[in-house]
Amino acid sequence: MRNEDPDKVAEGRNHGEPEPEKGELLRVRDLVSAFDTDKGQVRAVDGISFELEKGRTLGVVGESGCGKTVTAMSIVDLLPKPSGQILDGSICFNGDELVGADKERMQGLRGNEIGVIFQEPMTALNPVHRIGRQITEALKLHHEMESRQALQKAVELLELVGIPAPERRVIEYPHQLSGGMRQRVMIAIALCCEPDLLIADEPTTALDVTVQAQILNLISRMQDELGMAVMLITHDLGVIAEQCDEVVVMYAGRIVERAAAEELFANPRHAYTRGLLASIPRLESERKSELPTIPGQVAAIQDFVEGCRFCQRMEREGALTEIRPAYEEVSPGHFLERCPECAK
């Protein structure tokens, strides 16, 4: 099994300074993903760059339609075809270029080197197949396991993700499980081939707070055991604060800010990040006080300007919305879209 490499695990949970280059797992450069619509081609992801180190957790936060999910789908080549496509840029995973890689390579990668879990497990699981079959599918495909052996492994995995009576659950169907249990099954499927990277797209959004805490705890535990990196997509800043080493803040298809989690929460530089952090009600805030808000709303995707899109929301005009601000490292590890108005 690939994970018996002890260095990997040790290096994985290193919470101190990231070791550059050596531990890099994923490097995205100037990625542009677009969709053909009846209003013309729209760029859902418009030139974003970031890296993810082995074993670490990267949070991707932003509002609906900001391109979080499209970024994830671009990495695993699951953009809806033929309307969605990667127009430009590079995605480098474990040293391999994924943009333009052939179908066999991507199939060998998905579910094997990269596991994916989605927001709504009921739509991601096949309702007419037993749980066991859905877990063993990947094992048989990627590891050519025998049915009996794969089923044994499926039971072990269900036990690992905290499902009681796993030997009974493998012969049940998804509708017989609760939302939290289904998400555990999704995690078991995503982890069955011990991936290097787990992409979790809003894994707890459909769940209650107590079950959310269980699932997040499970993901961290699995990360410790398997030494994998996690890309956690969420709109919940609380989840980001509890789970992530590094955070990418997306707005309207672009990354406006990226920093280590503690740095981002303590020292947000972009007006959008600051607005987001201020607008969440906190337990310690005064009851019934007026909450700070971000005025306006995100422009429709076909109306995105070339310049700063947060300025577009603020109804500013001129050069601000015409010239794309530079995205630069402003202090070690802290990247910022340097709009003269939004990132002073």
């Binding site: 269980q214 997040l216 952090l277």
Partner: peptide, 23 residues
């Protein structure tokens, strides 16, 4: 238990709590 399960929006106050079991 409900109050303890709310994620805290401050990475410097990260807690290592065991979540409530069961459903």
């Amino acid at each position: 238990a409900l109050i303890n399960a709310i994620p805290v929006s401050d990475p410097s106050q990260r807690r290592d709590h065991e979540p409530l079991e069961g459903e």
